[in-house]
């Protein structure tokens, strides 16, 4: 007979990320449409739904780069994507790039067509991410392991992505409005909790 004791401190939501249910730090987000869509509706990356700058008191490691740099700030984004690009597989997957950086995909997004991602960034003097979304093209590159993407590979991918373009200022503004002001976390784990809320909202099947 089974006896199951669930001392459920934190429950993983999806295998791809360390998603954690936790007490809510903000109100639920409702994003059902984008008024200012600037990319084609059948593009691999179709829309920027949500963008929120964040800061970390304790630096985190960006595992999705070969150099595994640490970071203290970045963007938490929600993208509407072509599900075909995010079907989970153990083979190489298309790499999601944001500007001159790889993005860490927190969820899969295969069923919901939405990807929650953490985009690390350098910071300015105020600790704000220097990555300018208005100038950053966001695209899926060739299938590869993100942990094998170094600066050279990344720049080559950037050069090859000539068709990609940044989202419009209106779309970014709308996403920023959804995301709100910069949010500070002590640790990456707290950032995960915030990301988990976004996954729960946008991809409830991945709860």
């Amino acid at each position: 007979m089974r006896t199951t004791l669930l001392t459920l401190t934190l429950l993983g939501l999806a295998g791809a990320g360390g998603l954690l249910l936790a007490t809510s730090q903000r109100q639920p987000i409702a994003v059902n449409r984008v008024a200012a869509r600037s990319h084609a509706s059948d593009a691999p990356v179709r829309s920027l739904l949500y963008a929120q700058p964040f800061a970390l008191e304790e630096p985190a490691i960006h595992w999705w780069r070969e150099e595994r740099p640490t970071y203290r700030a970045g963007w938490l984004v929600v993208l509407e994507v072509d599900p075909a690009f995010v079907q989970p597989t153990d083979r190489a997957e298309p790499v999601l790039y944001v500007g001159h950086e790889t993005a860490e995909r927190v969820n899969h997004g295969w069923k919901c067509g939405r990807v929650v991602a953490v985009v690390p960034s350098a910071t300015d003097a105020d600790g704000f991410p220097t990555l300018d979304l208005a100038r950053a093209k966001i695209w899926f590159g060739a299938p590869a392991l993100p942990e094998q993407i170094d600066a050279t590979v990344l720049e080559a991918a950037f050069a090859e992505a000539s068709a990609a373009s940044p989202f419009s200022s209106d779309e970014i503004a709308e996403a920023r409005a959804h995301g709100g002001t910069r949010i500070r976390f002590q640790t990456r784990e707290e950032l995960d909790q915030q990301a988990a809320l976004l996954v729960a909202e946008h991809c409830p099947d991945e709860r």
Binding site: T3, T4, L5, L11, G12, G18, T187, D192
Partner: peptide, 22 residues
Amino acid sequence: HAVTEVLYSGGAWLGQDLYYPS
């Protein structure tokens, strides 16, 4: 043995699902 299952987390990337004889 009957089995006890426990879910817990020790932090980022430390979510664990544990099984042991009750």
